[in-house]
Nucleic acid binder design. Structure first.
Lengths: 161, 161
DNA sequence: CGTATCGTTCAATATGTACTGAACGATATT
DNA sequence: AATATCGTTCAGTACATATTGAACGATACG
C-alpha cells in the first residue's frame, strides 16, 4: 500500500535528525507535532509512531531542551501535552551558536598554552578558535533573520540591538 | 605527566568532530595536519595518533571529500602526503549547504503531495522546506564571506533574502 | 622478473548509544 | 485511605558504526 505524505514527512525528519547526529525518534516526534498542529499527549505520540512511551518521554524532553517543543497543560486532562513552538528552527540555531561559542572558548584557552616561538602552531590553533567564534555570531544573526522575515508576519518581530 | 597543548588540541577537535556526528579520528587527523603545517604521510599520522593505518586511510579521504584536506605528492618519496587546505571551514560550509538543499528538495516534494484542504498540513510542511532552502543560501553566503575576509578583520554578516 | 613498499578493501571486533520493558514515585480520583 | 493514571527512571538489549588486522592489488626498486 502507498505510504501517506504524513508518514513520509515524519520518516524524512527522522532521517535528517539521524544524519545530524540526533536520535531518529526525536525528528519523528517533531514531524508528528508539526502535522498535528495541536498539543498531543505522550500516549498519542507513542501510538502514532509505534514506539515506546519511554522513548517519547526522553526524546520529547530533548526537543524541549533544544527549544523546539514545549509542554502544555490541557484543561480537562491530567496528561501532559506537547506542541511545537512558533519558530522551532530559530531556537535550534541559537543552541548551535552556544555550542560553537563553547568550542571557541575551549580552543582559545588551548591556543594560549602554546609558547611564543612555536613556528606558528599557536597562531593556527587560535585561528580555529576565531572561526568558531565568528560562526557563533553568524548563527545568531541567521536566527535573527529568520525571526524578522518570517513569512507569516504574525506579530511585530523582536528587535535586538 | 601533563598533556601537551598539541595533544589537547588534537583531542578537542576529535571530540568536536564526534559531537557533530563524524568519526572522532577524522577530527584528530585534522588537528594533526593543522599543527604540522606541512604534508604528512599516512604512516606519520597513524603513529602520531597511535591508530591503525586503515583508519587513517579511510578518514583522511573523508576529510578530502569534505574539502578540508588534500593529497600531495612529495618529491623523493613514494608515499602520499596529506595537508589541510587553505580555508578548511569554508569547504565544510559548502558541503553542509548542499545537504540542506537536498533536504529542501525532499521535503518540498512531500509537501506537494498533500491535498489542498488539509487544514494547513501541507503549508506547514512547505514551511520546513522553505527553512532548509534559506539555510542553504545562508551557508553559502557565509562561506563566501570566509573566503573573501582575512582571518583577523571582522565583517558584518550578510543578509539573505 | 622478483622483491619490497605503498594504499586500499574487507571481514571481524569493539564500542557507543538508541530503544525498550518493567519498576517506581507522584498526583488525581473514588 | 485505596485505587488508578500519569510521567520518569533504570537496567538490559538491540543496533549501528567506528576501528582494526589481515589480505589484496598496484607501483617502484633491485
Amino acid at each position: 500500500m502507498p505510504v501517506s505524505p504524513q508518514d513520509r514527512f515524519i520518516e524524512t525528519l527522522g532521517l535528517i535528525s539521524q544524519t545530524e547526529g540526533s536520535p531518529r525518534i526525536s525528528g519523528q516526534i517533531l514531524g508528528c507535532l508539526v502535522l498535528a498542529n495541536e498539543p498531543l499527549s505522550l500516549t498519542e505520540i507513542a501510538e502514532r509512531l509505534d514506539v515506546s512511551k519511554a522513548s517519547v518521554s526522553t526524546n520529547v524532553r530533548l526537543l524541549e531542551i533544544r527549544g523546539m517543543a514545549r509542554r502544555e497543560a490541557m484543561r480537562g486532562s491530567r496528561q501532559d501535552h506537547w506542541a511545537v513552538v512558533e519558530n522551532p528552527h530559530q531556537q535550534v540555531l541559537a543552541t548551535l551558536a552556544d555550542r560553537f561559542r563553547r568550542n571557541a572558548d575551549t580552543v582559545k584557552s588551548i591556543a594560549a598554552d602554546f609558547p611564543e616561538d612555536d613556528s606558528g602552531e599557536g597562531a593556527r590553533v587560535a585561528g580555529f578558535a576565531e572561526f568558531y567564534l565568528r560562526s557563533a555570531d553568524f548563527l545568531d544573526s541567521w536566527a535573527q533573520t529568520l525571526a524578522t522575515t518570517d513569512q507569516h508576519e504574525k506579530e511585530t518581530p523582536p528587535h535586538v540591538g
